[in-house]
Amino acid sequence: MSTERLPSWRPGAARDAILGHLDGIGEVPVDERVAYLDNDGTMWCERPGYVQYDFFVDVLRRRAAEDPSLARRPELAAVLDDDAARIGELGLAKIAGALAALCDGLTPAEFASMVDDFVERYRHPVFGVGLASLVYRPMLELIEELRAHDFTVGIVTGGGTEFVRRISSRLYGVAPELVVGTMIGYEFGRDDRDRPVLRRTVSSMGAANEGPAKISHIQSQTGRAPIVAAGNSGGDREMLEWARSSAHGGLAILIDHDDAEREFAYRSMAATFEEAEPITAVAERLGWTTVSMADDWDQVFPSRS
């Protein structure tokens, strides 16, 4: 086994399982070699909070400075006050809808510009680094290995599709059309010169892209089923089961956050529903490949050990 393959992965059962599986797919048609990787907690750090949530909080704080009446709306007041208990009572779906509505009326180009501005300014509250330094180096190497085996690689997010599409090419080399997430709607209209224009509208926002929705959204948005999938929480369960059940013999990879020294140690859980069973227990029972961040990764981030 070449040490140049997955160089940030330590020798062990997880690395062997991944490489062994990929080396054994020679009979699978290239157009059926599809992999989907969850984003938050699988491709980049999701603690102490979701990056996309931080983006919308940034938007809210800027808008509230201009329009103080926003702070009187219960959902937005809870966010501005960082009131975790109140946010929990209201529910993430309601909070997410209220935050997403702050960008209603923006054109795709205007929203993209806001994302670019945020990414340029963003620094992780614990590590003090930008987004590119929060991506897991071993997962970037996994993408390289998948592509070496002629895989089409897509990114799946529980967050808004458009945010991740704006950064997927520069961070992962994944084209925007291969990003599947919670969909925002657009309204067609015309500008003052009678030219076509699209504007965001939360009124036609799709269901949160977690659990079974991930499968239906992957199918409806790309039409290609995975034979490899990676995730880290109960929100990824159905996607991992789907890949594992492939007629070609699929591979399901679960990232276990058990490294408090280099990242964070916690039990990954779905954001929008309660899980009946810990995802690590599901992985063991169903024969998935569980990756211990502490034991299986020699290096976690691109520029840090």
Rank of each mutant, 00 (worst) to 15 (best):
A243M: 01
P226Y: 00
L140G: 03
A225P: 11
V135L: 08
A225K: 09
L178A: 12
Y136K: 11
K214M: 05
L240S: 04
A243T: 06
M205P: 05
A175V: 13
E144A: 12
P226E: 05
R244L: 13
G173Q: 05
R224P: 03
G185E: 07
Y136T: 07
F163S: 05
R237H: 11
R166L: 01
R195D: 07
L178M: 14
P196R: 04
I227H: 06
L198D: 05
D191I: 01
L171D: 00
E238R: 13
A247L: 12
S245L: 10
R224G: 05
S246E: 08
V164H: 13
G231Y: 11
L171R: 03
E187Q: 11
Q221A: 12
R193K: 13
L240K: 10
M139D: 01
R195S: 11
A175R: 14
P226A: 04
G154V: 06
D236P: 10
G160M: 15
L240G: 06
V135K: 00
M239N: 09
H248P: 03
A148Y: 01
H149I: 07
S203I: 10
V153H: 00
N232G: 12
M183V: 11
E177S: 12
F151Q: 06
G160Y: 11
R244H: 15
P196I: 03
Q219K: 14
G231T: 03
L140Y: 02
V228Q: 09
E145N: 01
H149P: 07
G231E: 02
L146Q: 06
G189L: 02
F188K: 11
I143V: 15
G211M: 08
T161I: 00
F163D: 02
K214Y: 05
G211T: 04
R224A: 11
R199T: 14
V197G: 03
M205E: 07
Q219N: 14
G250L: 07
I215R: 14
A225I: 01
V135T: 11
V228F: 12
E177T: 10
V179W: 10
A207I: 12
G185S: 12
V135A: 10
E144H: 03
E210G: 03
A148C: 06
F151N: 08
G173L: 07
E145Y: 04
T222H: 07
M183E: 15
L171C: 07
G235C: 06
G159T: 08
L146C: 03
S233G: 05
D194T: 05
S216P: 01
T152R: 15
L198Q: 15
F151E: 03
T201V: 09
G173I: 01
A213F: 10
G189N: 03
G211F: 02
R193P: 00
V197M: 13
R244K: 15
G185T: 06
P196Y: 03
M239I: 05
